[in-house]
Every structure is written in structure tokens, then in C-alpha cells.
Design a protein around this nucleic acid. Sequence first.
DNA 1: GGGAAAAGTTTCCTATAGGAACATTGTGGC
DNA 2: GCCACAATGTTCCTATAGGAAACTTTTCCC
Lengths: 204, 204
Amino acid sequence: MEPVQSEEAGLAPEAGEAPDGQVLGKMIRDARKDKGLTLEEAAKAAAIGRSTLSKIENNQTRPSFEIIRRLMRTLELETPQLFVQSAQSSISGRRDYTLAGRGEHQETKTYDHELLCTELTSKRMLPYISTIKARDVTEYDNWVRHRGEEFMYVISGELVLYTEHYRPLAMSAGDSVYYDSGMGHGCVSTSEEDAQVLWVSLEI
Amino acid sequence: MEPVQSEEAGLAPEAGEAPDGQVLGKMIRDARKDKGLTLEEAAKAAAIGRSTLSKIENNQTRPSFEIIRRLMRTLELETPQLFVQSAQSSISGRRDYTLAGRGEHQETKTYDHELLCTELTSKRMLPYISTIKARDVTEYDNWVRHRGEEFMYVISGELVLYTEHYRPLAMSAGDSVYYDSGMGHGCVSTSEEDAQVLWVSLEI
DNA sequence: GGGAAAAGTTTCCTATAGGAACATTGTGGC
DNA sequence: GCCACAATGTTCCTATAGGAAACTTTTCCC
């Protein structure tokens, strides 16, 4: 009963009708992991179903506005990251999201993420800048891990990239590294000030 | 008939909240009226159904995230308003780009690429740093174009990103942009010194 | 290594979102 | 008043969102 599905494709800026919400799910998953929550915990806190959250994170559904709203509150996500009308253009970016909230920027003990793109649908790479808090850590055992690849470039500061399979890698401004993000990894700032890092992540 | 459907009745555990759900429709209607659009016009512009918009404005449905996103773009709604109620129009997600108008540039071509990873096999993203010579210009009719997506971050200097379909975008250190690289594009340095740019490219 | 518990995914089903067509309510001209 | 006709509201139907539970995978222990 669906002879024509065409009309949808016409107006939308992004061409492909591929159901890939692509980055939205990843963002939510990352935010959840950052807070150290399991699917169950996060879902309960947001008053949604565990399976629903799983589907959203895997981009297997087109969630309702209400559901997303609850998740954003629970995960303390910056709202503009999720939308921001980039005026029907595929050009978007610039660090203009820090905005309003002023301080209530999503922060965890260790990282402070700032997404560098808007229009999450239709994008496959996820670029963002992280501020890595200065702190002392003798050893790292709490790996970040997600299927895909990741490129990292140090904008400022000094840090050590700990990875699961290789020896720690000391990095400073201008250095970059490319690795399989399925391998556990994590950063620790080794300078007095926070370190700034640019990531580009590709989920497989 | 009046289905005073307490939409949230079953789901929302917290009672002290839930205003957004009721206000959403009014906000959207107001925004539409402000722009002097009829239901039909607005719905068409947002690529949604007329009846759907009607229901949303009358709070008779719980629209999907995607639908709301389209409406916000069409009506140029500020995102935080939808989440933070009583938001005093925090200027967010503003496109505070400085747009470079004008078109006279001399032409040359010489980027200076430096690949940031080795072992290209098994990698899907391609990160590299380009030095864009001062006063360097790419020819407009000879766009760079390749299937895929591209993320660009300005490390230093000032430049203008020219694209095939959008207005020139002036960028300086710290700015970034994400675009479909199938769209013709090219950079021109506008500062005295060379500009340094970090690219991450993803072929499809 | 193996078994158990936890985390995550998929399946199945119901309620409903979204859109086309139909119905109703303005609104201005005569 | 009555008639166009334009704008909005409602009905009807299908595809699917969302949740419970079954199932699978991963993570810990011993």
C-alpha cells in the first residue's frame, strides 16, 4: 500500500532516506557511558523502557520528541547539539554551542565534551572537542571502548593516552593518533592546565 | 470527543513537571503565525503533513523528534525554548559566522598536505593537515569534489571556505565545519600568514 | 576455563504517530 | 441571508514507536 514514498525525499536537506539516525544514537550512548550508567539505570531515570533506549542508541527507531527530551535531561545533554537548525545546509560547525547554559555544560570528572557539528542525521563521523581535566592518575583501568575508529589531535596541553594493548603514549600540542576504538583507551592530562583534544570518531 | 487525553498520565512519574508537552503546540502555532504562514504552507515547507501539524499545534499528538526538528528549522525556533521552559530566548546555536561576501581573488592552487596516519589499509577515515598558502586561491569552477564527508578544523590562520551551494564561510582558528564533500569546495587563506587546517575525510 | 550474573539486543504485541481524505468553520462579496 | 473558498479540524488507516519479556552477549568471579 505504499506506491509512492517519494515526497519525503524531496524537501529534506539531507538526501538519503537511509534510516540512519547515525550519530544521534552514538551521542546518546556516549553521554550515558560518560555518566557511568547502564541501559537499565539510564532508562529508568529517564522513565523510558530499556529496550527503547537500546534501539535509540543503535539507531533502530525514530524516537519521539518527548522521549528525547527526557533523555537529554537525564543525561544532561546540551540541547542545541541535537538540533540547531543549520539552515538546510550541510555546512555546520563552529564552536558556537557553548552558549547560554553557561557552565552547565556537560561535564564529567574527567572529560568535558563539546560537539562540533549539528544536524546529526546524515553524518557518519562525529567530531568533538574534549577538555581533559588536569588530574593525577597513577594507573588507568577504566577504558572507554566502542566499536569503530577514532582520530585524535591534541590542540593544547600535555596528556598521556593509555590504551589497552600498547604502552602509554605521551602527547602534546600538534600530535595526533589514529586507532581502533574497540581497543580500550583513555586520556590523562599531565600538565598543570587542562588539555584540549579534537576527536573525530567513526562508528562502524 | 474532546480527548483530554492526559498524554503523560501513564508514563511520567514526576508530577511537578510536564509543562512542555502542553506548551509545545502553542509555541509552534505562535511561531507559525509570526511568520505569517498557513498550516498548509508551513507543513509543506517542513515536509510534513498538514493534519500532522494541526494535531501538534493542538497538542493532540506526541510528535517524533524528527518532525519537531524539521519544524524548528522551518519556523526558525530557538531550540532551548522547547526544553527549558520560560527560557528567556537564550541566543543559542546562532550562526555567528562572519560571512565573506565578494569574489575577486587571484588564483593559484597549492595546498601542502601532510598525512597524519600511516598504514592506510584498515583505516576508513583519512586525517591530514594542510597548509594553505597566504593569498592562495582555488578556482571556483574547479572545485574539489569527492564522494564522502569531510570535517575540517582550523588550527591557525584565517581563511574562507568556498562551497558550491552555500555562501562563503569565513573561518579562523578554532572554527570547524562538516560537509558533504561531494559538494564542490575549496579554501582560500585571507591572512598574512599561511593557514593551517586539519581535515578528516571519509570516503563512501 | 567455566558458570553465573549483568549488560545489551531482539522479538512480539499494542497503542498511536503521521498522512490522505473528508468535514467543519470562518470570512468576504453579493 | 446565502454562496464561494480558504483555513483549520477530524476521521480513518497503515506503519511503527515503545515496552515487556525472551534471548544473546559480555563481564566477572572462582
